[in-house]
């Protein structure tokens, strides 16, 4: 039995590590109504799949076999089968879905409906709406704590991060942040929530327990006006070391030391950088650049931009499949 275990471990050890070879990057093209599929090995577009109108937020099912796509102008979330690359179903989403977040249990999807000031809670398997949670004006960003207990929604015109208890589906606290909060992201242990404010030009770090803002991070880039810096997508490494913030029309990704909250660098990427996604091993970070119609690839270890990949028009969302 010991021998068998050793054999197993050896076999495992010599098996190829899950490197970039296996990954695939999916990008939603808002104005082309397509998904671009990028091979993680060659970093080239290998396929372009037509989907619903105005695709924006995208993300995988729990088993990584399906891609959920907010088709905003079709008022639905589409389900794309990643083997056949065909749309195999729809999830009831409420009108104008822009982004969603999946509960860690893989069963519940939370969707922001901008026009109706609601977050729609959907059971994916049953395809039923479990609840509609009234939130502030123009809900946008969604984040879920690693333990699945807390859902956070940001409302762009109300300018708050709403903390929602996922058991009672009710708002329990509201944290006022700077103007037009776009995106929310918990850190790896769920202790802190990072919220970007597009028009305010800042990122707020909120203590998830006390719901107090512990730090407001500002940005300053020589030659770019204060108004030209508009934080949107945020990603945090799971080792707690780095935070990356897409700065929209500033065409840069800010690199922030997640322990000190100091901005360490600004990486020049494509135009109107919007959303970000890591490779599973967090060695690469992919950015969607809406106005230059490309994806920039950032080497996280070296903090360098290494490649730009042309995709469709107005790339918006990005997701990386292991």
């Amino acid at each position: 039995m010991l021998a068998a275990l050793v054999a197993f471990l050896v076999a495992f050890a010599i098996a190829p590590l899950p490197t970039a070879e296996a990954i695939t990057i999916y990008v939603s093209n808002e104005k082309d109504n397509t998904i671009s599929i990028i091979d993680g090995d060659t970093l080239e577009v290998v396929e372009t799949v037509p989907v619903g109108r105005r695709p924006r937020g995208i993300g995988f099912s729990a088993d990584n076999r399906q891609l959920y796509i907010c088709a905003s102008d079709d008022d639905t979330v589409q389900v794309l089968d990643l083997e056949t690359l065909t749309v195999v179903g729809e999830i009831p989403s409420g009108p104008d879905p822009e982004v969603f977040v999946l509960h860690p249990d893989g069963r519940i999807l939370y969707i922001a409906n901008e026009d109706d000031n609601l977050v729609t809670v959907v059971d994916i398997e049953e395809r039923t709406v479990l609840a509609e949670i009234p939130v502030g004006v123009e809900p946008e960003g969604l984040a879920i704590s690693p333990d699945g207990r807390w859902l956070v929604n940001t409302s762009e015109t109300t300018n708050m991060a709403h903390f929602i208890d996922t058991e009672t589906m009710e708002i329990v606290s509201n944290v006022l942040v700077d103007a037009r909060p776009r995106y929310a992201q918990f850190n790896h242990d769920g202790r802190y929530l990072w919220v970007s404010s597009e028009v305010g030009g800042t990122v707020s770090v909120i203590d998830a327990a006390t719901r107090e803002i512990v730090k407001v991070i500002g940005f300053s880039i020589p030659g770019i006006s204060r108004e030209g810096i508009q934080p949107v997508g945020v990603r945090l490494t799971s080792d707690g070391r780095w935070a990356f913030v897409a700065l929209g029309p500033a065409n840069r990704v800010a690199v922030i030391d997640a322990r000190t909250y100091e901005v360490e660098d600004y990486l020049l990427v494509g135009q109107r950088v919007w959303q970000l996604a890591f490779s599973p091993d967090e060695s690469l970070l992919f950015t969607t650049n809406g106005r230059s119609n490309d994806v920039s690839v950032i080497d996280v270890g070296r903090l360098k931009v290494t490649k730009s990949i042309t995709v469709g028009r107005f790339p918006w969302g990005v997701a990386v499949r292991p």
């Binding site: 037009r180 028009v199 508009q230 029309p249």
Partner: peptide, 10 residues
């Protein structure tokens, strides 16, 4: 004071 009024800047 900063009002977000759908014009890209406060």
């Amino acid at each position: 004071f900063a009002l977000a009024a759908f014009k890209g800047v406060a």
